Each structure stands twice: as structure tokens, then as C-alpha cells.
Simulated scan of single mutants.
Amino acid sequence: MNEHEHDASTRPAVSRPRTAPEDPPTAGLRRELPAEVPARASAAAREDVPQEEPAGPVLTGRQRLVQGLWPPRLTRAQLIVALLLFGLGFGLAVQVASHGEGDSALRGARQEDLVRILDELDDRTERLEDEKRGLEKQRDELENSSDQAEEARKQTIEKERQLGVLAGTVAAQGPGITMAIEDTNGTVEANMLLDAIQELRAAGAEAIQVNGVRVVAGTYLTDSGNGVDVDGNKITAPYRFKVIGKPQDLEPALHIPGGVVQTLEKEQATVTVERSTKIVVDALRAAERPDYARSSSR
């Protein structure tokens, strides 16, 4: 045994601590990428755990719009504006409907009836033009007269006479018509006679008398048993109208489609209208002095 062998055998043995075997190279690589394992684990967890169903059905765009609009959330100002717009729309609808009814009545009229209506409108326009020319003439006379005071007095007297005719305080005569209404069934009512008076006034009637009662601006009619009260005076059928005005305007106004004569005939009444060159309206009304109103002229 050589020296080296002696030394090795005689040298006390030194104990070395045992170490765990080294990990394979792949283990060190996994520790360098720690996020890869949790990512795979979370993916596996998502695959194992069942997904929760949506809370409710998916709403369409229209459904979301309806949910946003209803129930409405209005302020007081918005509510007031909405009510005003509703009232305006309702009024316009009623007006359009009323015009539509009038248009339908005209569409159903005969050609001769339409011609008569147009003639009546032309006559009314002509009357208004005559009245305008008369007023302009009075103005010119007052401006050009050398004695304006005397001219003003004459015009005042003439105006008083005209107002007396309209107020029923003086008698009147002139061309016009007479109308007789026979009511054997008692179906004629006060509102029908009032419609006749209003139609005659619109056609240019200047003085009207019914069964001895003078009709003026403030005249009222009411039903009274088997007759009609005119300003508190009881009258019964037959109802006789005496009207002063232009006969060519008064008679056609009563015969227009849907007018006075047609309405009365539907009630089984008989209506007779005659023209005359002289009608006398002699029923008078007492002049009434107002209690409080006084002339403002000085």
C-alpha cells in the first residue's frame, strides 16, 4: 500500500450532509412562469362551475323605449301645457267638424239652390255697399254744407225717424212680404219662429210684426202651451208675419235648403210667402227711457 492509499485509509472519514436530489430542469422552468398554472386552473374552474343564467329576458329597443316613457313623469308645468294643447286640439277638431257639416250640406244641394244662395250673398253685399255709400254721403254733406248746424239738425231728425222704426216706436210702410204659418198639429215651437225672425233680419228686414206684436232687437220668444209668447204677449196659430224690406232678398232667404220653410214643412206646417209693394207695420211699442244710461255727447 502506497503512501496515498495509507493516507486515505488512515484519514478519518468526514461525513457530508445529504442533500435532496435536484429537481429536473423542467421544474425550474415552471417556477419562472408562475402565472401559467393559475390561468389554467381558473379556466378549469370556469369549465367545472355552471354559469348563472341571465336574470330576465333581453329587452328590445322598443320595449326599453316604452319603459322609459311609461309611467310618465310630468312636472306641473308640463301637465298644464299638455292640457292647454289638448283643449286647443279639441277646439280645432270641433271647428273642422262644424265646417265639414256645412260643406256636406252644400254638396248635397241642387244647382238651383246653390245659385239662390249665391244670389242672396250678392244681395247682402250690395246692401252693405249701399249703406256705406249713404254714410259717406252724409259725411260729405256735413263737410261741404255752408250751414253745417242746419244740415246736422236735418240729419239728426232723419236718424231719429230711422231709429224709431227700428225701435218700434213709430209706424212704417214700404215694400216687403207677408208670411203665414198654419200649424194644425201644434208642432211649431218658439225657436222655429225665432229662426224665421233672424233669417229675415239677416236678409235685410227693417220692420217686422207678428200677429200684432212689433218685433225689435230685444224681442224674446218662449213656448206657452198651445202657442208662443212674444215679449210676454200670447199669440197662437196661424202665425202671420208682416215684413218690410226688399222682397227679392226676403223671400229667397226663407226658401234656402235647410232654411225656415223647409224646417217648418218637416213639422207638418203649411207656409205661404207672398211679395207685396206695400206692407204696413203699425204695431207700436212704448218708448222706454233707460234708468241709468245717459248720452255721452255734449
Rank of each mutant, 00 (worst) to 15 (best):
N2S: 15
S9C: 05
T10E: 04
R11F: 14
A13K: 11
A20N: 13
P25L: 14
T26M: 14
A27Q: 08
L29H: 08
R30C: 00
E36F: 08
P38Q: 11
A43I: 08
A44P: 01
R46Y: 02
R46V: 02
E47V: 00
D48Y: 07
D48H: 09
V49Y: 11
V49N: 08
P50W: 01
Q51K: 11
A55T: 09
A55V: 13
L65S: 10
V66M: 07
V66T: 05
L69H: 09
P71E: 03
P71N: 03
L74K: 06
T75E: 05
T75N: 03
Q78S: 09
Q78I: 02
L79Q: 06
L79E: 09
I80H: 13
I80K: 15
I80R: 15
V81L: 07
A82V: 13
L84H: 06
L88W: 09
L92T: 12
A93T: 15
V94Q: 13
Q95V: 12
V96A: 15
A97G: 13
S98Q: 13
E101V: 15
S104P: 00
A105F: 07
A105M: 11
G108H: 13
A109H: 00
Q111R: 01
Q111D: 02
L114A: 11
L114C: 05
D119N: 15
D119M: 08
L121N: 06
D122F: 04
D122A: 14
D123W: 01
E126L: 13
E126V: 08
L128M: 10
E129W: 12
E129M: 14
E131I: 14
E136G: 03
E136A: 15
D140H: 04
E143F: 04
Q148G: 08
A149K: 00
K154I: 10
I157P: 01
K159D: 04
Q162F: 03
L166I: 11
G168V: 03
Q173E: 15
G174R: 05
P175G: 08
G176I: 10
I177W: 05
T178P: 01
G186E: 09
M192W: 14
M192A: 15
D195G: 10
I197H: 09
E199Q: 15
A202C: 00
A203S: 10
A203H: 00
E206Y: 03
I208H: 03
Q209M: 12
V210N: 05
V210R: 08
N211S: 12
G212Y: 05
G218H: 04
T219P: 02
L221N: 05
L221K: 10
G225F: 06
N226S: 12
N226K: 13
D231T: 01
I235M: 07
A237K: 13
P238V: 07
P238N: 09
P238M: 08
P238E: 10
F241W: 07
F241C: 04
F241A: 04
K242G: 12
K242W: 07
K242V: 02
Q248W: 00
L250Q: 02
L250H: 03
P252Q: 10
P252A: 10
A253W: 00
G259R: 06
V260R: 07
V261D: 06
Q262H: 07
Q262N: 09
K266Q: 12
Q268G: 01
V271S: 02
T272V: 10
V273M: 02
V273D: 02
E274N: 15
S276W: 00
T277L: 06
K278F: 02
V280D: 04
D282Q: 11
A283L: 12
A287F: 06
E288D: 09
E288H: 05
R294Y: 01
S297H: 03
